[in-house]
Amino acid sequence: MDKLSVLTTFVTAAELGSFSRAAERLGKTPSAVTKAVAQLEAELGTRLFERTTRQMALTEAGHTYLEGTRQALMQLQIAGEEVEQLQQELRGRLRIISPPSFAPAFLREVCCRFMTEHPLVRLEVDLKEGSQDLIEGGYDLAVRDGPTDLPGLIAQPLLENRVVLCASPAYLARKGMEVTLDNIEQHDWLILRNPLLSRHYWWVELEGRNTRLRQPVPRLTSDDYDFLLACLLDGQGLQFVPTWSVAPYLARGELVEVRVNQWRVLSAFGPWIHAIFPPHCRNNRKVKAFIELLKAHVQESGRCAR
């Protein structure tokens, strides 16, 4: 096993805290990971891990060696990317992470277009909720809403995360009423459940100030956004949705924006969707090309971009 592979195996095992998970991440067998670490410990003449039947932890020497190895591998990656940039065509792997709801809205189209334009690039796209650590997870780029004040990361705004109230024409024809503060309990509400969202209140802008508005009893709740969107399109109720998600349906008349004059709901996920990447990817041509394609798609599709 070559030295670079041994060092990569050690760092992955240390970051994941498990030889078996490191083996899964690297596509190796657990015995190969154990052998690589043992080879490194023999070469250094010291133990890097304290291992028991229940847990594994770095020794003091392991912590010291991990920091230096991380820096060395990062410098090698940067050097490799600089050499790559001397080549005319983009090539290699690009790892991206994004919430699942972004895929049908815009990410799927952008990825397909990117692969067509850059046939030598391999994409790995993980669709997961939450704010996974980009560096620990080995990602080059994240597309996400929510907080961007994350240490050691760079964020670029992509598109506005404005929330609107929508319903299908069939629902509005069936109910035949506007939406006001006085009649919200008479409507059928489709409500997303998420750790960032209150189960009891909406934060709204009312008469120029932000305040809490008690939620009506929902007709349907779910933690899956795409499931709720399908029910919205089927005419089952009203839902607060981000404009980036429903722009095509509004353009085709499959959904209608319901305007409420007295109040406006505020997004709990922040006002913008961002492209987020580690500092060492600042000059990565694949990352830059993907972000530019994202921005172009946002503009072409008529969504609000910055």
Rank of each mutant, 00 (worst) to 15 (best):
K3D: 10
V6D: 01
L7S: 01
T9V: 05
G17V: 02
S18A: 13
K28Q: 14
P30N: 07
E43G: 01
T46H: 04
F49R: 11
E50T: 15
R51Q: 14
R54F: 13
A61G: 01
H63D: 07
Y65K: 08
Y65W: 14
L66K: 12
E67G: 09
G68E: 13
T69Y: 07
L76G: 09
L76K: 13
Q77M: 06
Q77W: 05
A79S: 15
G80V: 07
R95D: 04
I97H: 03
P99L: 03
S101V: 07
S101R: 03
F102E: 01
P104K: 04
F106V: 02
E109M: 06
P119L: 10
P119H: 04
R122Y: 04
G138Y: 09
G138P: 11
A142Y: 00
P147I: 09
T148Y: 05
G152C: 07
L153R: 07
I154Y: 09
N161E: 01
V163Q: 10
V164N: 08
Y171N: 13
E178T: 12
E185R: 11
Q186T: 06
D188E: 14
I191W: 03
L192P: 03
N194I: 00
P195C: 07
L196V: 08
W202H: 05
W203A: 00
E207M: 00
R209C: 00
T211V: 15
L228W: 15
L229Y: 12
L232H: 08
L233M: 14
G235Q: 14
G235A: 10
T243Q: 09
T243N: 02
V246P: 04
G253Y: 14
G253H: 14
W263K: 02
P278G: 08
P279D: 10
P279K: 09
H280Y: 14
C281D: 09
R282T: 14
N283P: 00
R285E: 10
Q299K: 08
E300G: 00
S301P: 01
